[in-house]
Design a protein around this nucleic acid. Sequence first.
DNA 1: ACATACTAAGTAATCGGTTACATCGTTGTG
DNA 2: CACAACGATGTAACCGATTACTTAGTATGT
Lengths: 329, 329
Amino acid sequence: MITMRDVAKKAGVSVATVSRVLNNKSVKLKTVEHVEKVMKELNYHPNQIARSLSKKNTKTIALIIPSINNPFFPELASAIENIAHAFGYKVFLFNTDSSKEKLTNYIDSLGSSFVDGVIMDSHMLEEEDLDKLTQMEIPIVKIDRSNFKDEFTSISVNNKLGGQVATKHLLDVGCKRIGHLKGTDEEITAIHRLWGYRSVLKEFDWFDQSWIAPGNYSVEGGYLGMKELLIRKPEIDGVFAANDLSAIGAMKAIYEWNRKVPDEIAIVGFDGISMARYMVPSLTTIEQPISKMGELAMKELIQLIENPGKKIESFELDIRLRLQESTLR
Amino acid sequence: MITMRDVAKKAGVSVATVSRVLNNKSVKLKTVEHVEKVMKELNYHPNQIARSLSKKNTKTIALIIPSINNPFFPELASAIENIAHAFGYKVFLFNTDSSKEKLTNYIDSLGSSFVDGVIMDSHMLEEEDLDKLTQMEIPIVKIDRSNFKDEFTSISVNNKLGGQVATKHLLDVGCKRIGHLKGTDEEITAIHRLWGYRSVLKEFDWFDQSWIAPGNYSVEGGYLGMKELLIRKPEIDGVFAANDLSAIGAMKAIYEWNRKVPDEIAIVGFDGISMARYMVPSLTTIEQPISKMGELAMKELIQLIENPGKKIESFELDIRLRLQESTLR
DNA sequence: ACATACTAAGTAATCGGTTACATCGTTGTG
DNA sequence: CACAACGATGTAACCGATTACTTAGTATGT
């Protein structure tokens, strides 16, 4: 491996000068040119690890997400990676696969100062984990699920409001019996969406818990949950699925049950993943500004990293109803 | 920041001993316990960067993919990340967004020895890039698109065969006029799939280039390309789309055109992304063993990294026809 | 009892950069 | 003309670990 000393020796200057050339510090133009020529000749690449060690930064962040099967996360990751790249940061992909063990594992590793910051999107965080993270004194931005106190900058949307908008919309298009495919029980987003749904329907006398089935935030879950609802509630004519994936599963179940979307059963999802537009029929959904969330998260994290005075903030971005065929009637 | 010296001082031993405790080298049990206790007390975490500098490895790999919107890549990334994690490796996500500039940028950065290896899935590699990569002497595994000579270990499937299987299947279910939504012109996989399609149909006298429309490997592209075909070839009754995304777009176009899948037009995709199963109707597709490809790639890369004697190999995995409703008639 | 082998631990060099401080030559000012 | 100020460069310490080499102490064998 070619090192700075090799370059210095061949160029007849000191290592300090080579370093200065690399970092655009004051060096005579002629020297710069000469040293750069030597670097080319030797095909020299500065060692990022050594640089990180003395500079005490790595220009690297960790992105912790619970799953990669839900397109929401790739879309988010894409936005994050884009901004990161634009600002010279690299992104570690830590996929916890909804496994607590893997999450703990990753969190523990963060203490080893190989990342400058963390974007965390996980519902499985417990007090213990948060304590660890706080102790590490590493900048953190939480996305999507701000279930804990305001120790970290967080980016989220109003999930309860989203649930309300979705449910009201189903009422607006004439649905009389509206079911819900809820997300996982641990996720705060899922709980809030459920609350939104319930808050709109609680005054109706037909409404009770039996209109709620598990959807598990997954296609398979939505599919199974919808089958359950179809059996239990043949009169169902509207569904609010806690996310787009489960809505897609639900549509599949409805189709197999030989019922028509939207005429017999209208359906609303949540997230606004791009695939929702291309379903047949296209899926009405509560759209989160996914890219904007990713961009904001990354930009905030960079702020946190690069100017230590930066304060913790909470951002709540707007959702909107993206009207499509699945509720068009 | 707490360092090894702090631990050493407090424990009354030398830094070497602390290091040995960390690396399970021969140390008296009593000393180990004592040092570990001190580490706990000080909340000491070894600095990964310093460790990497002296060990000359980073337990990190770079995954370079062209896009994150096509679910194929998240599914691949997921498999890779899983194996990586199991073997103690971390994964950098480099998404080139089909931008040559970003790719070059990332490739150049790889010289700085901050990764032990690279998994590369990009069709945009040019001679120049390959030269750079070869010079860096960094272990590389290429996935999916082995368009260049055998300088690197590569994992792929037989795309031409896939195109043939898909097209023959459409003939088998009774299609008389079969169009193709091709992928991007630069991607070798797309070219091979097209070849497969053409090789099956070239003997038919109705067949010519005008049955091929651009699909661009994207939903939008498939949608637009299908519209084009529907206008140009009203008699079309079968479509082989170069990937699942474009097939999904095509189904949307067909639906809007008020034609029925599969009865009036049958359609086959390529890739076997999990979403294909949940389309309405579900999408028949040429299934690549995506997870297996990712796992194999990562395992091979680890081999390459950890035992330098390891030879370059080419793996061609099997594809299979995944029969679903979109060709069921 | 003494040479030999082995274990546990310490000393200091090293990985490849950055940077505080020192040095030297040049230019500017009264 | 003498001295201050500044710009370009060199020297060497440092970032936080690992590890080759060395040494002290203990166990084994004859």
